[in-house]
Design a binder for these strands. Structure first.
Lengths: 337, 337
DNA sequence: CTCTAGCACTCTGTGTTCCCGAGTGCCAAG
DNA sequence: CTTGGCACTCGGGAACACAGAGTGCTAGAG
């Protein structure tokens, strides 16, 4: 059905269209990609490719443009991920190494990725689920208010101000803090709920209301926000591109964390570090865009996802290379800290 | 030079142009704003206004459009800040009251402001400069690494991982923490440098290298990042508007914290809660946009600034009302926590 | 059976022309 | 100072023609 030459034609169409942003015709194709055949032959192949739905023409007597299905075939079978240059890799390394804390790592990562790909970069904060507790801090703010600070081994810090149901003396708070830390230090976040289940019973009865309040906030902190935080950068790169769905929708989606999460997708459990490419209509919401994403985190300890979002007409090999490389480097950085 | 009627004409031109986005002609003006005079008279006034540089025409035989100078006069003398409706105020209050921590307050504020004004909202994180130290925490992470966490009375948490020059036992760290807290608790951040100046001398000699490292990081935390953090929302609202400078430049500026800070401007020391309006070319960078901003924070304790950014053709009275109201509410919320 | 060359056909995009109408500036009269 | 009248200007849309790119088809060559 699709012999090698037809595939070569498809590849050439995708490459030319991506670089020129203009429908590509048979003549230009035959010339620029030394295919050793005449334009007429190319035309026959193009007719076949169009028949199968891999390409389409905007109007009669214009060149051909890849369809989502065409890009899909290109990504799956006709292209190879393009590695970054040595210079680029060095630049990444030094830029990421300069980060001072987790916020900074994430910020630098997302900016770097946006700059490398000239697309919109999206980075999900490392999820808490697989993290462990490094420290729990209770800071008395006033008679009836304390601040809860939870520090994880990934360097993430969660904080909440808690209103207590009654006045609790500072030394009681200090005691609770000591108990909490001895109990939770180094434990996985997912095990926290069971670990603190019987805690109220092990403490003086008069503290129970306060303890219950504090623990419930702690639990909230764990479950509610563990993967909601997500940032993007490079919105300016959207200015040039044109989207099927309209620029406004894309910008709106970028500010909706829920939508953004969905677009990045789930890390598949069997091959967590694989690149995910969703093209055009394969995406939930935002049909007119493509998303290249991957999980990051060292080895079996996948932390979260990152990727880029752009028009379907994007340079997939280069973009995939950049996403993969950045994911690897940020994984290293996080593993080291 | 500019009698009352000419001012009324200018006001009418601004209002019409803002609402229709089309150059406004003398005839339509005379009809819609019962000015009690004929189009010809209006034309004479318009000629005078143009002579003075308050309005201009895109091309001969088109209506008039306000210049930056025209908007400036309108804002200064011809308009009143428009208060929000009761329903809007209630909505703000309940929405902001639901915030759980400082990040959440800022996030909610910026989104709210974007939604109210249908412009891009910008909020600077509460600056540390006038905050006081609530708590300093040192958490040993490993033999040679500790995490420094600085908690301020505004609920802000700064964190740094510190590599120590040598192994320091945990109880020494604990001691240093106690000393630091007793020394700094409740003190203004700006006084911290002098307060810790002689600290190394008051501690055992063998700890000095480690202490010096920790203190230098603490100082860095204070000075470096105290006002860099700034967020925006509502970029999607830019999609419709057209900017003199091009959409791309605006989006780029939004991601450059330094530029954003400059655009928000300084809080004037004498009237900190006054609304600042910068119109078009009055702005540093981004000449094609207008910025409406104000400081927030309770009373004499100004924390930082917030505002919105949009095309020069914006509804200033409404925008100013929204910015002022949101600043007041967020000040309340922060003062209460 | 596949490839190639030639040819007629169909579009889009561009440039030209024309004309309408909105809006202006100026002038003279109220 | 205001107003009505009037000639003028210019942008934008409609109508039109045209060149060029690209196609599909057919017939012939390998």
């Amino acid at each position: 059905m699709l012999d090698d030459r037809k595939l070569a034609v498809l590849r050439a169409i995708v490459e030319d269209y991506v670089s020129t942003n203009e429908p590509v015709g048979s003549k230009a194709l035959a010339e620029r990609h030394n295919l050793k055949v005449s334009p007429a032959t190319v035309r026959n192949d193009m007719a076949a490719l169009e028949e199968e739905g891999y390409i389409t023409q905007p109007h009669t007597s214009a060149g051909r443009v890849p369809t989502d299905k065409g890009y899909r075939l290109f990504v799956d079978r006709l292209s190879q991920v393009k590695p970054l240059s040595a210079a680029e890799r060095r630049a990444i390394e030094t830029f990421l190494a300069g980060a001072v804390d987790l916020d900074d790592v994430v910020m630098r990562t997302v900016r770097l990725l946006a700059q490398l790909t000239r697309q919109v970069a999206v980075v999900q904060y490392p999820t808490l689920t697989r993290s462990t507790v490094r420290h729990v801090e209770l800071v008395p703010l006033s008679e009836r208010r304390v601040m809860l600070v939870l520090i994880t081994n990934t360097g993430r810090v969660e904080q909440r101000v808690i209103e207590l149901p009654e006045v609790v003396e500072d030394h009681r708070i200090a005691h609770l803090r000591a108990v909490l830390n001895s109990c939770l230090d180094g434990c996985g976040l997912s095990t926290v709920p069971e670990l603190i289940a019987d805690l109220p019973e092990r403490l003086p009865a008069e503290d129970r209301p306060a303890v219950a309040t504090i623990l419930s906030v702690l639990l909230e902190t764990l479950v509610e926000r563990h993967d909601e935080k997500i940032v993007f950068a490079g919105a300016a790169n959207l200015a040039g591109a044109d989207f099927a769905t309209g620029l406004r929708d894309v910008l709106e989606a970028l500010e909706e964390h829920v939508v953004l999460m969905r677009l990045l997708g789930e890390t598949s459990s069997d091959t967590p570090s694989a690149l995910t490419v969703r093209i055009g209509s394969e995406n939930p919401y935002l049909r007119g865009t493509s998303v290249v994403a991957t999980g990051y985190g060292s080895g079996d300890n996948q932390l979260a996802r990152l990727g880029v979002l752009g028009p379907t007409r994007m340079d997939y090999p280069v973009t995939m290379g950049a996403v993969r490389a950045v994911a690897r480097y940020v994984s290293q950085i996080l593993a080291a800290s």
